[in-house]
Amino acid sequence: MSDDWFVDLYQRYYSSIFAYFVHSGFPREDARDLAQETFLRVYRAMEGYEGRGDFAFLKKTAVRVGINAIRDKKAVKRHGVVVSLEELPHLAAGAENPAGEAPATPEAEAALREETSARRRWLQEAIAALPAPQRHCFLLRLAGLKYTRIADVMRIPLDTVKSRLHAVRHTLRDKYRGETEGFELPEELAEDDRD
């Protein structure tokens, strides 16, 4: 077997595979390692096989390498906090104390903590109570995925993503009505048809 095909494959697609890993959220140096790993696997898979690696095989291998890398990274973190605020910068931006001041007394501080905790419990229950298809779209949107990417992941049309998130918005608003004053939806849900 001549290996010219491999040099050709590398020259044609190495930059594309690297870009895929960067766009998937990997830091640049990790993306370079993963791109190399992808080509290494393709080469090894082709050893002793009367064929050549093509782009379709390269692409599939890159996705597998990416999934495995994410899983390996998660396995290391498994015993710690599952998602840090750093991973959710778009939500973390509003993580300040709304009043911006410390409570005057320990009793006031305890009351504030209890109130905050009740609000968050309510939200968590509201998320869990959503029908599965709506919840999936909503969680991915909260994670910052664009509508088009959510459609790709869920394998549904873009309009279905929009209608599911529209339904989530109404469900949450209806549910919250009468609980207490003021209800701010996350920005990700504020508009119907962004992206």
Binding site: V81, L91, A93, A95, P98, R120, I127, A128, E187
Partner: peptide
């Protein structure tokens, strides 16, 4: 008043319990 920080916390807690 429900704020962004509440959403962030509820989201994290939901992910943690649902993943488990």
């Amino acid at each position: 008043m429900i704020r962004k920080s509440d959403w962030a916390a509820a989201y994290q807690e939901h992910l943690a319990s649902a993943r488990q």
